[in-house]
Design a protein around this nucleic acid. Structure first.
Lengths: 160, 160
DNA sequence: CTTGACTCTTTAGTTGCTACAGGGTTTCCA
DNA sequence: TGGAAACCCTGTAGCAACTAAAGAGTCAAG
């Protein structure tokens, strides 16, 4: 099948497939005379595996490790367990961070119940306070903990 | 004060300050003869405000909106409340996603209790299954929901 | 034979920084 | 006074995992 069919079959975008090939997650395929990539069932399965892992929020690097195990079926899979345990740890840590963040945000929101002028807005005033390290509030550790991005989307809609 | 002092005073990196200036979050400053930026208290407060917002995981775009309100203190701050409510919604949604993810990962982990050869590893076998839409498992909605990245860090340590 | 759908490569954009490279300036200490 | 260290400047490239678009070629149907 051609790349568009593979894309449809796996629910992946065409560009993403080419990207995975560049990244070495999918092997380079044979081509038609017209230089079109052609794929078989094995490719579809491998791509499904990758997408499944991605839906579990694994990084491409983690997936690379798992693929190495799939490609070497006689290896001991202890490292697979370890990788998954570590990934679970990441997710759990991020949940804890976000919960602390949620508490802070709700506390902040409570400072301004109704709309008035910005100069007296409890939220803006609180955000302007020198919080830095005086208040050892969760801000410090939430911030440093690397898990960026809560969501994006309204942004890209905007340019449409 | 010079940029390094401002950086120390607010716990921000120098490059980050210059970046905020490029992005229009901080105004361009006057310079010394030697072309050094000089800052005053107002700059320090504004930067603290920004960093405080960032520690609450707001995007620069959201912060831009808040700064507009701070700069126009007679405006009605209803939009501030709305922005914060929306942000809280993002965080809550991401928490729900991650919890669902955590459940899936733990279920997956249970499939392989001890290390054996990769060909019989329950985890690898499960991940290889065509999950797509057959299983309407959380995979679908977790994936599409835009909140990428659980954490990163071991990666950058590697290059040291 | 032409239109449209598909494919190709290459490049740049996204977010919020961080880290250079390759300079100039200031300050401190001997 | 001289020279090294510590600071500052601009500009550019890199991170993750794509996404989009430019500009060109290929293929199938009407």
């Amino acid at each position: 099948m051609k790349i568009g069919e593979l894309a449809k079959a796996t629910g992946t975008q065409v560009e993403t497939i080419r990207y995975y090939e560049r990244e070495g997650l999918l092997p380079e395929t044979t081509r038609t005379e017209g230089n079109y990539r052609i794929y078989g069932e094995a490719h579809a399965e491998r791509l499904s595996f990758i997408r499944h892992c991605r839906s579990l929020d694994m990084t491409l690097e983690e997936i690379r490790v798992l693929l190495r195990f799939k490609d070497a079926p006689n290896e001991n899979c202890g490292e697979v367990n370890a990788l998954l345990d570590e990934h679970i740890g990441h997710v759990a840590a991020r949940i804890r961070e976000l919960r602390s963040l949620e508490r802070q945000l709700k506390g902040l929101r409570d400072l301004c119940q109704e709309a008035r002028d910005a100069a007296h807005c409890g939220i803006l005033n609180e955000l302007a306070r020198q919080g830095s390290e005086g208040g050892s509030s969760a801000a410090g550790h939430v911030h440093g903990a690397h898990g960026r991005s809560v969501e994006r989307k309204s942004i890209k809609d905007k340019r449409k």
